[in-house]
């Protein structure tokens, strides 16, 4: 009986496992293999030459290749951290606002928030690059009205990356607000009623009921937000081209430049593998932290 069950389970799983193997695992393994090769993306795989860890030594070395890669890795980490710091609290705040039934215009606000997520990035990039324009941009004109001088936004290495983060947060916060609302609906209303009877104020209700019971939703949101942030590409390609001084040169854009534009497939693969490993470490650490909290 168990044998028949295993056989039928195996048969049913085979199509999915095969597809995953061909379209996900195989390219990943191929990328790992290529990261140990000297290979041009314009030549067949058969021309690849094994060079051990040379590509990894190069990307972490002191040459311009290493300097640019480490800069891109740092930029990606900063971009990801700032995106999470902005998006998660904002999504919870907006979620709480929209979820309150007694707030007028909640549905309209929910629609407006989610609509930013539906706008194509090309349109967002075009509009925001003009909003950030140092001389004629509306943002600087508005700042001028309250006595703040013109800000360089995308034109300064100090502020360009943060400006891209703000654009990203503006576009993505609606999606994460919807996730936050989904989390809020899972919290039984009786808990709030009991807390009210015990004299808990709104902040205490949020601190001791909402936040702990939203932990799983927030963990999911954090993981998705991290993956989205690490994969940022369009605003950089469309607006800043990685500049000025490489301050917005994030890893996906850099890997495209090295692997495709310069055809350095081995180096590009080593960078992609490093990015993948970094992402795995961060996500695992996040899950481990959440599990520890659950056990406590």
């Amino acid at each position: 009986m168990i044998q028949r069950y295993r056989a039928s389970a195996g048969i049913m799983l085979t199509p999915a496992v095969t597809l995953i193997g061909i379209f996900i695992l195989l390219p990943m393994l191929l990328t790992v293999w290529l990261s140990f090769q000297d290979w041009s993306t314009q030549t067949p795989f058969s021309s690849a030459r094994f060079i051990g860890f040379d590509n990894f030594r190069e990307i972490f070395g002191a040459s311009s290749v290493g300097r640019d890669f480490k800069g891109a890795l740092t930029n990606t980490a900063i971009y990801t951290a700032f995106s999470i710091i902005l998006i998660l609290p904002l999504s919870v705040a907006f979620g709480l606002m929209v979820y309150q039934h007694d707030v007028a215009g909640g549905t309209a606000l929910r629609t407006v928030l989610f609509s930013t997520y539906m706008v194509p990035m090309i349109a967002v990039a075009l509009v925001w690059s003009k909003l950030y324009s140092p001389s004629e941009g509306p943002l600087n004109q508005m700042l001028g009205l309250i006595g703040i001088g013109p800000q360089p936004f995308l034109s300064s290495p100090r502020s360009a990356l943060v400006s891209i983060v703000l654009l990203n947060a503006w576009q993505q916060v609606g999606y994460f607000t919807v996730l936050a609302i989904a989390g809020l609906t899972q919290i039984p209303g009786s808990l709030y009623e009991a807390a009210k009877l015990d004299g808990a104020n709104r902040f205490e209700q949020f601190r001791f009921i909402t936040l702990p019971l939203m932990r799983r939703t927030l963990l999911f949101s954090a993981v998705i937000a991290i993956i989205n942030a690490v994969q940022v590409f369009e605003p950089v390609a469309l607006i800043t081209q990685g500049g000025p001084v490489g301050s917005t040169n994030v890893l996906t854009y850099h890997i495209r430049r090295v692997g495709i534009e310069r055809a350095q497939g081995g180096l590009g693969s080593a960078m992609a593998v490093t990015l993948m490993l970094s992402l795995i470490v961060v996500v695992c650490a996040l899950f481990a932290l959440a599990n520890r909290k659950d056990q406590e």
Partner: peptide
């Protein structure tokens, strides 16, 4: 002034505007 010098993907942008 470097902040007035930025170009975009279409080789236009603030450097041209200025």
């Amino acid at each position: 002034v470097p902040a007035m010098a930025t170009a975009d993907a279409n080789t236009t942008g603030p450097f041209l505007d200025n």
